[in-house]
Design a protein around this nucleic acid. Sequence first.
RNA 1: UCCCCGGUAGCUCAGCUGGUAGAGCGGGUGGCUGUUAACCACUUAGUCGGCGGUUCGAGUCCGUCCCGGGGAGCCA
Length: 432
Amino acid sequence: MAVITTVEQIGEFVGETVTIRGWLYNKRSSGKIRFLQIRDGTGTIQAVVVKKEVSPIAFAASDTLTQESSLEVTGTVRADSRAPGGYELMVRNIEVIQVAEDFPITPKEHGPAFLLDNRHLWLRSAKQHAILRIRSHVIQAAREYLNREGFILFDAPILTPTACEGTSTLFETDYFYGERAYLSQSGQLYAEAGAMAFGKVYTLGPTFRAEKSKTRRHLTEFWMLEPEVAYAELKDILSLAEQLVSHLVLSVLTHRTEELRVLERDESKLKSIVPPFPRITYDEALDILRQQGVSHEWGNDFGTAEDTLISQQFDCPVMITHYPLTAKAFYMKTAPDNPDVALCVDVLAPDGYGEIIGGSQREDDYQTLLKKLEAHKLPREPFEWYLDLRRYGTVPHSGFGLGIERTVAWICGIRHLREAIPFPRMLQRIYP
RNA sequence: UCCCCGGUAGCUCAGCUGGUAGAGCGGGUGGCUGUUAACCACUUAGUCGGCGGUUCGAGUCCGUCCCGGGGAGCCA
């Protein structure tokens, strides 16, 4: 019995006979020789079937194989510069598990609608594979970093009794006995309760926005990482944000080089992502816009065009702080030296990838928070528990939300968010 | 909700001022001992998004509806 291994590990078995279990990615044939590109989930390897070196049954089997047929191949590992990947398998035997029906996704071009209809199969192609491995790594690296910094994972509920921020549109569903429930659009308020209990916490989970957004920067269901820290002021989470983001980038650069190569990502741009990130205020951002010939009224949040213009001035993600209160959520703390601006930050990724982080120092005074709720015309009852946090040992605290898909899309250098999550949920699409 | 673009073979697309549908890929058959989205030959392949209208005649023109893509607003 040959040892069963993976393509990823194949380099350790040069000269030995191993078995790879996988699927046929592509096939080329030429007379008495067959080249099988086999993928096993960890990578792709070329298996060479030479007629005189395998049984007639095995050779005939190699001819019946269609794209994505499942098979076990046993052969000798050989380093060969002619093979993509550097190693190839000289086949001794082929065990066909299933001859697949005609696979819809061929090695040629396809349109986005077709690919999205076949997302469950599209996931097998090299580029999608690379993106999703990087996504997995980004999440792993984020958790690794936060755990090391003393954070604990604090899961927020997905079914909630009301809006967290009260602004965005919510997905509504029936709860029991005529009650309504809403899918969470942020775990933040719950994370604040966690921070008061544990000091440093983070939530990581799906969030839902029923906005009729129809752009490549939006999904209706997306994942968010939300650290929340007790006794932290705005400057503390600015530092946390730049440390976290640069750690994610460095970790992908170090551990996912093959995937970045598949994606043809310009790595030099990622290598320049090192702290400290530029920090500017909203007012300074307005100055930049003015220099670019764009006038923007004070008090309005920036739109996509403004975000892009500002981020283009920097190689690193830029941290914009002190937005007008009018443009931001009710829970943000007002700057002590300026009653019109919030102690908040938006982090814009370079190259027009947009906002990857939104955060703030939270309002920690009971009476002030109450007034802010009223000013935003939000009902008091659903927020009683949240107000309690300001009645029982309130402290300054801050946190932010990092959009996983936007971060992954930026690191991967892909145009559209839909490829940064296994099964994207969008305005016009919930299948498959 | 608004603005732009699109819907023709399984897939990607071409199809001119209206004259009855075509290429590559995929599938099938055959050939080739080192292929790299292999190649060569032959072959298969259609309710031209739906409905209605104009016309001798509509993939093509008009109306309308459906579906998809991109963008705005909103946001991560």
